[in-house]
Each structure stands twice: as structure tokens, then as C-alpha cells.
Design a protein around this nucleic acid. Structure first.
Length: 494
RNA sequence: GCACCGAUGGCGAAGUGGCUAACGCGCUGGUCUGCAAAAUCAGUAUUCGCGGGUUCAAUUCCCGCUCGGUGCUCCA
């Protein structure tokens, strides 16, 4: 079993990650704020956390994974108001969409997905504990703040030295008399037109950071193995989580911290004003495949900034197509029993060990994907030459499964997912956002395609190549590719 | 402004103080095919942003510069 070596933001070093004090590895990853559809930058983070949990499981480590859903915050309140919808109705819609998108991208559902609004009591208890130590204090308007001066280790995650940091002009000016500008809100006093809870702290709603501390502690305990999130959350969010949790419990909150670096699109940070902002649904409607998006977002290791381009997305689509074709070929069988190609045996073993070693080495997904290539080439070559044995194929399939347990791109659900996206667009009145060629591609049913393929086979038998080629061209125009083989014609959607 | 990260072929991208700088996609040519597709073989960076330094040896370490990105404020 390979041990996973993972970079730890807290220590600044690559360290072995393993469960401590429990059979399962306990991990917490910051989840979505459900105020809009998820964009590909969001999903890059969730995808890499998914790879982490899949790889751990492959290595025989059970995982208990918590991902919060933030269903109350400023943006939600603002957007719901703008949409003229009650908060609960507004968030329910985007929460549903979020989990649909996760599913489309093959991201496993964590063991726990707590909503913030269902854990207000735990947050209140935590704030009370801090108040009892005089670390939390209330201001005149009724809000509660965390006194940073009382937590000496503040800044240890993001390596910030507060002494050297000026209280900048950018600190929110409309906050009430906080003791220090950097003190952050634990509990926001109720305001007209905002949701609030009546508690011993007074009427109000939780600050952003407290929910993660409270829910992580409630489900995983005061001290657990790993906390993950996007790099932008390192400060202040994660720093504040540590402060709140450790000040209250006196124990180490998360031992290991993992941060996924940012995604750029066409070399620039995604932003609506640059016109390079994409949700998963935008891309599906443009005709891109969910599997290719998954594969591309995983093709650059989590610790590197990744540049998303449409050219690379096309390359990912082709790369997956090759793997799927290969997978089908191995599955189809027909290889001789008792024959063994030694080159394939060696290549398969090498690919398997390099695959695992690459992931064990700080989740190097780029190297892991590359490791499979040698095996694919060797097995295809041997199959062409007729030297591939049945045992070879079985071994190759085993390694391919090793790959797919983590990458999860071999099963073809793309057409189904694209159809679902189109249906959604229709319901939302966004059909105009769908690429016209996409609609064309999905126009033919499988039965219609098969009838045409059959007709072409007949034409070929009759040596009517003109007719056969006309059918092939017609199908190609509608996104269907034909492959002739000695066991007949096969087709697939392009 | 302060801090941090990156710069590798047509594109994406891995990597290392010294073997022919992975892998994928693309492109060119061969094999296969009625023709294609698929597959395969060969070719496709004498070179790793620029300048300097350390070293027997640097793409890999150090310094400076340029460019891109990120954090310092809501953000995956």
C-alpha cells in the first residue's frame, strides 16, 4: 500500500496523510454557497477533493468526509431579494442544481452534507464558549466578534504576521465599534428584511466562518485529520476557523490543510466582465462533454494554477475517446487463452505502479494519467499483431479499473447528461444558449442510426460504395462516426 | 504598494543538478482499409521567458529583469 504524501499548508511541507485516532480518515471540505449555479472554478476544487477521497479508498483508507452547504449569507439574501423569492425557495433551487452538477461530473457525494441553517444551535454553543473565555464580545448593535488579540497563533496558516499588517482602509467601515479592525463577526445582529434566529446571543444570524467550525466539530470532533478548500479560502476563512475552534477547544483543529489553486480561463481569472465565466451548464449547452470537463480539470495537479482553454477541452475529449475505444476493445475480448505477450505484461505492471506512485506523491494527477499510456500503446500494438493473450487483457482491464476508480471517465454518460442539460435549458427558457449543432447531433435516435448503419452494410455487400459513403457522410454530419471492423460496423456519437 | 506563485514544443502539461526533457492532443508520412474510421509505426523542443552568478556540470540552485497570475476585501 502506498502512503499518500500530501502538501500541508500549515507546515509548508509535504507530509504523510493518515487517519489518527479513528479507523476512517476524517476530512472536512468547504462546500458551496448556494446563491447561483456552480462554475468550473468551483468544481475544480471539488473534483480534486474527490480524487483525494477516491485514491484514499483505493489505498484501503476509509473516509468520513463532510462538506457544508452554506444556505444563509449576504449574497444569498441579496440575490433572493432581487429575485423576489423567499430564501428557502431560492436556496433549494440552487442546492438541487449543485448536486446535479456534482453528479454530472462524477463527484462522489460526501458522507455528510450539513446545511448551515440546520446547525445554528451548535454555532451558538461555540460562540458561548468563546464568550465565556472573553474571546468573543458583543458590540452595541448586538453583533458578536472574535477578539483576534486573544489568539496568539492567528496567521499561522496563511503565514501572515499581524504585527506587520496595517489596519487597512479596506476594512469594512460600517462595522460597529469593534475592538480591533481585524476582529471578525461570529454573529450578526438581526436586521430588518434579513433572516434571523432568536437565541441566547440575541436575534441574529451566523457569521460566515462559524458554521464550518461548528459543523466540523459536531460531526468530526474537535480535532480531525484534514481540512480542504480553494486557495482563496486560506485567508481569512480558514484562518478564522482555526482561531475560533482552537480558542474554544484548546486542541488542534485540523492537522492537515489542503488548498487547491485557482483556475484561469484563457489565461485570465474568470470574471463576468471579461466574458470568460462559465458554469458547468454553460459548457454542456455549448456541446462540451461532462467527462471531458472532469478529465481536463483533473489534468493539472491541484497545487498548480490551471489554465482552462477550449483547445485543451477538445484535446481532453479526444483523449477520453481513445481510452474508451481501448476499453471497449479489451472488453470485447476474443484474445487467445494461454498466450501471453511479455511486453504487455511488463508495460501493464509498470503503468500500474507508476499510476499509484504518482497519486501517492502529492496527488500528481498529470503523471497518473500519463502512466496509463504505455500500457494502452503496448496492448493496442499486441492486439493489432494478434499476440495479446486473454490473461493480458484481463490484467490490462484490472489496471484500467484502477485508473478509472480515480478518474471516472470511462463510462459514457455524456449524451444522457447533455440531453438533461438541454431539458433544463428548455425549462428555464434558455434554449437559445444551446449550440445549434448540438441540437442537430442529438436529433437522431439510436434506432434511426442503427437502421442507417444496417442499410450501409447492405450497400457495402452489394459493393454500392457510393451509397455506403453517402450514408456515412450523412451520419457524420449528424455527429455519428462509423468504424468498420472484421466483426461488422460499429458507431459512436462524436 | 506589500507578500506569494508561475514562465518548458503548435496547444495543454510532467519532471530532474549530469541518461535520448514524460504523457496527451494536434500536425506530416508509412502500415491497415474498397475509401475512411479505429489502431499502430516513424517524424515533429540540440532545448526548458531574458540577463548574470554558483558548480566539473543548471531547464532544475541563487540574484536581477520582463511578463502572467494570486492573496492582502466577497470568492472554489
Amino acid at each position: 500500500m502506498a502512503a499518500l504524501e500530501l502538501f500541508n499548508t500549515l507546515s509548508g511541507k509535504v507530509e504523510r496523510l493518515e487517519p489518527v485516532g479513528a479507523p476512517a480518515l476524517r476530512m472536512y471540505a468547504c462546500g458551496p454557497t448556494i446563491y447561483d449555479y456552480g462554475h468550473i472554478g468551483n468544481f475544480r476544487t471539488f473534483l480534486h477533493v474527490d480524487v483525494l477521497r477516491r485514491f484514499l479508498r483505493q489505498q484501503g483508507v476509509a473516509v468520513e468526509h463532510v462538506m457544508n452547504v452554506t444556505d444563509v449569507d449576504d449574497k444569498i439574501i441579496r440575490n433572493a431579494k432581487a429575485a423576489g423569492k423567499p430564501i428557502a425557495e431560492y436556496t433549494a433551487r440552487f442546492e438541487k442544481a449543485f448536486f446535479e452538477d456534482m453528479e454530472a461530473l462524477g463527484i462522489e457525494r460526501p458522507e455528510h452534507v450539513p446545511r448551515a441553517t440546520e446547525h445554528i444551535a451548535e454555532m451558538v454553543t461555540l460562540i458561548e464558549q468563546l464568550a465565556a473565555k472573553d474571546i468573543a464580545y458583543q458590540t452595541e448593535d448586538g453583533s458578536w466578534y472574535f477578539r483576534i488579540a486573544r489568539f496568539a497563533e492567528y496567521g499561522k496558516l496563511s503565514k501572515k504576521d499581524l504585527e506587520g499588517m496595517e489596519d487597512g482602509a479596506r476594512v469594512d467601515a460600517d462595522e460597529y465599534e469593534k475592538d480591533a479592525a481585524r476582529d471578525f463577526a461570529l454573529w450578526k445582529a438581526a436586521k430588518e428584511g434579513e433572516p434571523s434566529w432568536q437565541t441566547v446571543l440575541g436575534a441574529g444570524r451566523p457569521g460566515w466562518h462559524i458554521e464550518c467550525s461548528a459543523m466540523a466539530t459536531a460531526i468530526l470532533g474537535e480535532s480531525f485529520d484534514l481540512h480542504a478548500g480553494g486557495e482563496d479560502l486560506m485567508f481569512p476563512h480558514h484562518e478564522n476557523e482555526i482561531a475560533q475552534s482552537e480558542a474554544a477547544s484548546g486542541r488542534t483543529f485540523a492537522r492537515h490543510w489542503m488548498h487547491v489553486r485557482f483556475l484561469l480561463v484563457e489565461g485570465k481569472k474568470m470574471s463576468k466582465s471579461l466574458g470568460n465565466f462559465y458554469t458547468l451548464r454553460d459548457l454542456l449547452l455549448k456541446g462540451h462533454r461532462a467527462s471531458a470537463i472532469r478529465y481536463l480539470l483533473l489534468s493539472v495537479p491541484y497545487r498548480h494554477q490551471m489554465n482552462f482553454t477550449f483547445e485543451a477541452l477538445g484535446a481532453a475529449t479526444n483523449a477520453i475517446e481513445r481510452l474508451r475505444t481501448f476499453h471497449q476493445r479489451m472488453l470485447r475480448g476474443g484474445f487467445a487463452a494461454g498466450v501471453v505477450d511479455a511486453t504487455v505484461t511488463a508495460a501493464t505492471a509498470k503503468s500500474a505502479s507508476e499510476f499509484t506512485a504518482a497519486l501517492a506523491n502529492d496527488l500528481n494527477t498529470a503523471e497518473a494519467a500519463a502512466a496509463i499510456s504505455e500500457m494502452v500503446r503496448a496492448a493496442n500494438s499486441a492486439a493489432d499483431a494478434g499476440t495479446l493473450g486473454g490473461e493480458n487483457a484481463a490484467e490490462v482491464l484490472r489496471v484500467l479499473m484502477l485508473f478509472d476508480e480515480v478518474f471516472a471517465v470511462l463510462e459514457d454518460r455524456d449524451e444522457e447528461l447533455t440531453r438533461a442539460a438541454l431539458k433544463w435549458a428548455e425549462a428555464e427558457g434558455r434554449t437559445k444558449d444551446a449550440a445549434p449543432e448540438l441540437v442537430l447531433k442529438l436529433a437522431l435516435s439510436d434506432a434511426e442510426i442503427e437502421a442507417l448503419v444496417e442499410e450501409r452494410t447492405e450497400a457495402k455487400k452489394a459493393r454500392n460504395f457510393a451509397r455506403a459513403d453517402a450514408i456515412r457522410a450523412e451520419l457524420l454530419a449528424k455527429g455519428v462516426v462509423i468504424e468498420d471492423s472484421k466483426d461488422g460496423a460499429r458507431w459512436k456519437r462524436k
